[in-house]
Amino acid sequence: MDAESLSSELNTELVFDRIADALSETGYAVLPAALPATMGDALLARAASFDHSVFRAAGVGRADKFQLNALVRNDEICWLTPDNEVEAAYLAWMEALRMGLNRRLFMGLFDYEGHFARYAPGAFYKKHVDAFKGRTNRVLSTVFYLNPNWEVADGGHLLMYDHRDNAIATISPLMGTLVVFLSDRFPHEVSQASRLRYSIAGWFRVNASLGSHIDPPQ
Rank of each mutant, 00 (worst) to 15 (best):
residue 2 D to V: 04
residue 2 D to N: 15
residue 4 E to M: 11
residue 11 N to V: 14
residue 11 N to M: 09
residue 13 E to W: 03
residue 13 E to N: 11
residue 14 L to C: 07
residue 17 D to H: 08
residue 20 A to H: 06
residue 20 A to K: 06
residue 20 A to N: 08
residue 23 L to W: 08
residue 29 A to Q: 04
residue 29 A to Y: 02
residue 31 L to M: 13
residue 31 L to F: 05
residue 32 P to V: 04
residue 33 A to R: 09
residue 34 A to Y: 00
residue 35 L to C: 04
residue 37 A to I: 07
residue 38 T to V: 07
residue 40 G to C: 03
residue 40 G to F: 00
residue 44 L to Y: 06
residue 46 R to Y: 06
residue 47 A to H: 03
residue 50 F to H: 13
residue 50 F to E: 10
residue 57 A to K: 09
residue 59 G to R: 02
residue 60 V to L: 08
residue 60 V to W: 01
residue 60 V to C: 03
residue 68 L to S: 01
residue 68 L to P: 02
residue 74 N to F: 08
residue 75 D to T: 07
residue 76 E to W: 09
residue 76 E to V: 09
residue 77 I to R: 04
residue 79 W to F: 12
residue 79 W to P: 01
residue 80 L to D: 00
residue 80 L to V: 00
residue 82 P to V: 00
residue 83 D to F: 02
residue 84 N to L: 13
residue 92 A to S: 00
residue 94 M to H: 01
residue 104 R to C: 02
residue 105 L to A: 06
residue 106 F to G: 01
residue 106 F to N: 09
residue 107 M to P: 03
residue 108 G to S: 02
residue 108 G to H: 02
residue 109 L to F: 01
residue 112 Y to K: 00
residue 113 E to I: 01
residue 113 E to M: 01
residue 114 G to D: 03
residue 115 H to R: 10
residue 116 F to D: 03
residue 116 F to C: 05
residue 121 P to D: 08
residue 122 G to E: 13
residue 124 F to G: 09
residue 124 F to W: 09
residue 125 Y to A: 06
residue 126 K to I: 04
residue 127 K to Y: 05
residue 129 V to C: 15
residue 132 F to P: 05
residue 133 K to N: 11
residue 134 G to H: 05
residue 136 T to E: 15
residue 137 N to H: 14
residue 140 L to M: 09
residue 140 L to Y: 03
residue 140 L to N: 04
residue 142 T to A: 15
residue 143 V to W: 04
residue 143 V to H: 04
residue 144 F to A: 01
residue 147 N to P: 07
residue 149 N to P: 03
residue 149 N to S: 15
residue 151 E to D: 10
residue 151 E to M: 14
residue 154 D to N: 13
residue 154 D to V: 05
residue 156 G to P: 08
residue 158 L to Y: 11
residue 162 D to E: 13
residue 162 D to W: 08
residue 165 D to T: 11
residue 167 A to T: 14
residue 168 I to E: 09
residue 170 T to R: 14
residue 170 T to N: 12
residue 170 T to G: 10
residue 171 I to R: 05
residue 173 P to S: 12
residue 175 M to N: 12
residue 176 G to M: 07
residue 180 V to L: 12
residue 181 F to I: 10
residue 181 F to G: 07
residue 182 L to S: 12
residue 183 S to L: 10
residue 185 R to E: 12
residue 185 R to F: 12
residue 186 F to C: 10
residue 187 P to Q: 11
residue 187 P to H: 11
residue 187 P to D: 14
residue 189 E to T: 12
residue 190 V to H: 10
residue 191 S to V: 15
residue 193 A to F: 07
residue 195 R to S: 07
residue 195 R to F: 05
residue 197 R to N: 09
residue 198 Y to G: 07
residue 202 G to T: 01
residue 202 G to K: 00
residue 203 W to H: 03
residue 206 V to H: 02
residue 208 A to L: 04
residue 211 G to Q: 02
residue 212 S to A: 14
residue 213 H to S: 10
residue 214 I to V: 13
residue 216 P to R: 00
residue 217 P to V: 15
residue 217 P to M: 07
